[in-house]
Design a protein around this nucleic acid. Structure first.
Lengths: 202, 202
DNA sequence: GTCTATATTTGGATAGAC
DNA sequence: GTCTATCCAAATATAGAC
């Protein structure tokens, strides 16, 4: 039998989270205020505590939600093309566009910008598992050695970061994703053939 | 004749800013508190207002200071090597290491993480001028077309961001700078020869 | 220039009635 | 579960004596 009370509770929690997202998108991630959230869902501030233990618990639920959205977005692009180059392009497009789509979410998931907050182990695990799966996808696309993987993640976060910071809502860096991946792919292909390269010390 | 009063005032302002930097490095950029700053320089909080008009004025002075440090660090690496590849490596090393050296400074200068704050036109101009000069240096090093410049800045911020976020104090991504620049340089060199490449639409 | 005293706002959080 | 009432702490900022 359906538990109507639990359902209602869940839907109210979701409503609160929605209001919180709206607020951080409007005023910045760090500017979340329980008062304003309560008001925008038609409650008095103390009533929120029936749904979340604390302000950080709200941040944590938002983190988990964002991480789950990331999992879903990433699974939506399966199956990846067989062609390795095309698969890499698809993966980087997914990542950069996911980040660029929501600045506040990007800050919450990928940067440490809220002074007292860090995600709970349960919430963090969602991200961690997803990252591991992306790692496997990359391995299947031919990116195996750790240095290349780090280089690709740098490329991805760099494109995302520039897009968000310097052209929000536009596509100035999104346009460059294919070219960046081609550059990267050519590089690792060449490195695999001539492994003496790239071992330089500075 | 020296204006001893003005000197003293300047030195007190500097002392306040030092205390502010220490605090944000310890507790996060957004956690700056005038109380704690005042206490750590041995003042009562209201006394700070003799030196700065508001909290955001302190952020602004910190921004200007960070921007000036960036200018100095960047001018310290002149003259650049004649070799274009080596010049690019030096430039990217400068940028990534400057960012990685101080997370709070990085956040203040390059990200919009403080809800109500944005730098004053005067402070922002310091950054802007410096950015323009870096652009010229890049042009002299062979990076001329806008797309390549954007790609390189993405590479720089990506390496910096990953280094700061995932290996603070280490060198996991700093180690990759030379390789990244080689990859990039080979890419733009080839693009210049065969300009039909890289024009793909997705 | 620095202090004391205080205003004012805002924040997160708790107690207890209903 | 929601409210009222309240607490407590912290924050920025101002007024005015010294």
């Amino acid at each position: 039998m359906r538990d109507r009370r639990a359902e209602r509770r869940e839907s109210t929690r979701a409503e609160i989270l929605d209001a919180a997202w709206e607020q951080v998108r409007e005023h910045g991630l760090a500017a979340l205020s329980l008062r304003d959230v309560a008001r925008s869902v038609g409650m008095q501030p103390p009533s929120l505590y029936s749904y979340f233990d604390s302000k950080n618990a709200i941040y944590d639920a938002m983190y988990a939600q964002g991480a789950r959205e990331c999992v879903e977005a990433q699974q939506a692009l399966k199956p990846l093309p067989d062609d390795q180059l095309e698969a890499l392009k698809a993966l980087l497009h997914f990542f950069v566009e996911f980040c660029a789509a929501d600045f506040a979410r990007y800050q919450l998931l990928f940067q440490r910008t809220i002074p007292g907050f860090e995600p709970s182990p349960e919430s963090f695990k969602i991200s961690e598992d997803n990252l591991a799966e992306i790692g496997e996808m990359l391995a299947r696309s031919g990116v195996t050695d750790p240095g290349s993987l780090d280089l690709l993640t740098a490329l991805g976060t760099g494109l995302a970061d520039q897009q968000i910071s310097n052209d929000p809502g536009g596509d100035r860096w999104i346009r460059l994703i294919d070219e960046a991946v081609e550059m990267f792919y050519e590089h690792i292909t060449k490195k695999a053939k001539k492994p003496s390269k790239g071992r330089r010390t500075r």
